Amino acid sequence: MASDGVVVEIGKVTGSVGTTVEIPVYFRGVPSKGIANCDFVFRYDPNVLEIIGIDPGDIIVDPNPTKSFDTAIYPDRKIIVFLFAEDSGTGAYAITKDGVFAKIRATVKSSAPGYITFDEVGGFADNDLVEQKVSFIDGGVNVGNATPTKGATPTNTATPTK
């Protein structure tokens, strides 16, 4: 695992066909100046998982989280898009600690492993708008004895992609 920078880890949970599971997305290594904004994309298989919603985690402190935390689910493109932009203008609602960034709610549709993997990152910046190093650890849903650990090695991303 990367020793510096922010680590975004997609949790690994267990479920069975027809059940709804909650998959946490963790941030670790949050910089001392916090995270003022970030955007990134995960990939998944809508034939295996139906993403039914995404909720902000406990490290989102904006009293009205829909102003700073936004997501979009595109089953036709097989992606989930995340956007966080601190909304106070003063840094008061920045992410300042490690913990759960988001909770992905999904219904298991198939007995195949439900991988959720890193696809791309736009950027991560602290309260001074300084770009942060970030790496990703894939996860998803274990169905029966299947284990979604494909790509469990962190993917280092030093520069934003478009």
Rank of each mutant, 00 (worst) to 15 (best):
D58N: 06
I60A: 15
D87E: 05
Y74E: 00
F27A: 06
I73H: 09
I35E: 13
V108E: 09
P148W: 03
V141C: 10
I80T: 05
V6K: 02
T117D: 07
G91Y: 10
P24S: 05
T14P: 09
P56R: 13
T149D: 09
S88L: 10
D76C: 01
N64V: 05
T71E: 01
V100Q: 09
D87I: 14
G5A: 06
D98R: 14
S32L: 07
T149N: 13
D62V: 14
S110G: 07
T117Q: 04
R43K: 10
A2T: 08
G122L: 00
K12M: 14
K12C: 05
D4Q: 09
N127H: 01
P154G: 11
D58M: 06
T20G: 06
T14K: 12
V41M: 01
R43Y: 14
G34Q: 05
T153I: 08
G123P: 00
F40N: 03
I35T: 03
D39L: 00
D98S: 09
D76K: 01
I54Q: 02
V7M: 15
I60H: 12
I137C: 06
D126W: 00
A158E: 11
D62K: 14
D62C: 15
N156M: 06
E120P: 00
K12S: 11
T147S: 09
K150Y: 08
D62G: 12
V17E: 14
E131Q: 10
P75V: 05
V61L: 13
K109I: 09
V130H: 13
E131A: 03
F101T: 08
G151Q: 13
P63K: 14
F84K: 01
F82S: 03
G140T: 14
D70E: 03
T117E: 04
A72K: 00
G114E: 09
D138Y: 08
D98M: 07
C38D: 07
A112H: 11
D58K: 02
N142I: 14
P160K: 15
D39I: 00
G11T: 08
P75I: 02
D58G: 06
I80A: 05
S135M: 03
I59T: 13
Y115M: 03
T19F: 06
N142R: 14
A146Y: 09
P65H: 15
G144Y: 13
E50P: 07
G29M: 03
A112M: 02
R43T: 06
V81T: 00
G18L: 08
T90L: 08
G89L: 03
F69P: 12
D76A: 04
G151F: 13
T107M: 08
I137V: 11
N37E: 01
S32A: 08
A94F: 01
I60N: 10
G15Y: 09
A94S: 05
D39E: 01
E22M: 15
D55L: 05
A102M: 13
R105A: 13
G139V: 03
T90A: 09
V141R: 12
N64A: 08
D87S: 15
A158V: 10
T96Y: 10
I73G: 01
P24R: 05
P113Y: 15
A112R: 13
V130Q: 09
P63A: 14
D62Q: 15
V141K: 13
G91N: 02
I52L: 07
T90I: 15
T159C: 13
T14H: 10
T107Q: 09
Q132F: 03
G53E: 12
K103T: 08
P24M: 04
P160A: 10
N64K: 13
T149V: 11
A72C: 01
R77S: 04
F27H: 10
D128M: 05
S135L: 11
I51N: 09
K103I: 11
D76V: 01
D45G: 13
F40S: 02
M1L: 06
Y26D: 03
G123K: 00
T153E: 12
G114C: 06
F118V: 03
V41R: 00
D39N: 00
D126N: 14
V134S: 08
G114D: 09
A146S: 09
D58F: 15
D39Y: 01
Y74L: 01
E86T: 00
G99L: 11
G15P: 09
N127W: 01
P56E: 05
E86S: 01
A112L: 11
E120G: 03
F84G: 00
T157A: 09
G144K: 12
P31C: 00
I51Y: 13
V130N: 06
T19R: 06
T20M: 07
I54A: 03
N47H: 07
A85N: 00
G123A: 10
G11P: 07
V41L: 02
I116V: 07
F40T: 02
D87V: 15
G123H: 00
G15N: 09
G122K: 00
L49I: 04
D70F: 15
K97N: 05
T149M: 06
V25C: 02
T149A: 11
D55C: 13
T107D: 10
K133S: 07
S135C: 08
V48Y: 03
D138S: 11
D55F: 14
K78H: 06
D58P: 05
G34S: 05
P65L: 13
I104W: 14
I73A: 01
V100I: 10
F124N: 00
K12V: 04
E9L: 08
G99P: 01
I35P: 01
F27K: 02
C38H: 00
F69G: 04
I95K: 01
D87K: 07
Y93A: 14
I54K: 00
V121M: 06
I23S: 08
T161V: 10
E50M: 05
T159A: 09
A112Y: 04
T157F: 10
S32C: 01
P31H: 03
